[in-house]
Amino acid sequence: MDKHLQEHYRLKIDEKMSIGSYEAFRFRNVVYTIVPITNMEHEEIVELKQMSDYLISTGERNIASIVPTASNSLLTSIDDQGNILLLQMPTQQQGMRGNYSLGSQLAGFHEKGRRFPYQVNRSNRIGQWKKLWEQRLDQMEIFCDEKVRQHPSSYFEKLLVESFPYYIGLTENAIQYLVDTELDDQPIHTDSATICHHRFTRNTWLNERTVFPIDWVYDHASRDLAEWIRGEFTNQYKIDYNEVFKFTRDYERVTRLSTFSWRLLYSRLLFPVHYFESIEGYYLSSSEAEKKQYEIRLSEHLKRSTDYELFLKEINHLIRQSRNNTSKVPQVGWL
Rank of each mutant, 00 (worst) to 15 (best):
S287V: 07
C144D: 01
S192D: 14
Q236G: 04
L257E: 14
L86Q: 00
Q92Y: 10
E309K: 15
K303A: 02
S305Q: 11
R125H: 14
I168K: 13
H274W: 04
Y22G: 11
Q94T: 10
V273I: 14
L284Y: 06
V161P: 01
Q81C: 01
L75V: 08
L302W: 06
Q88A: 10
W334K: 01
M89W: 03
R320L: 01
E134G: 00
E146H: 09
F311G: 05
R230K: 14
I78W: 02
S163K: 03
V46P: 04
D250C: 08
L55W: 15
D53F: 03
T248V: 15
N39S: 11
D180S: 13
Y167L: 11
R256V: 10
T210W: 01
Y22R: 14
T38P: 00
N324M: 02
Q81N: 06
Y218L: 08
M51K: 07
P68C: 05
A174Q: 12
S73G: 03
H274I: 01
D145C: 07
H197T: 14
F311H: 08
Q176G: 10
W129N: 15
L265W: 00
P165L: 14
G108E: 14
I279R: 03
N29Y: 06
Y54E: 12
N62V: 12
T91E: 15
A226H: 07
N29G: 03
G231Y: 04
I296Q: 13
D80I: 01
Q92T: 13
S18Y: 06
M140S: 10
E309W: 11
L102Y: 11
I195M: 08
F271Q: 02
L160C: 12
G333Q: 08
V273W: 04
R256E: 13
V30M: 02
L160S: 08
P272Y: 09
P36I: 05
N316M: 04
S153W: 02
Y155T: 12
P117W: 04
D180P: 03
S305W: 01
W133D: 04
H317R: 10
S327L: 12
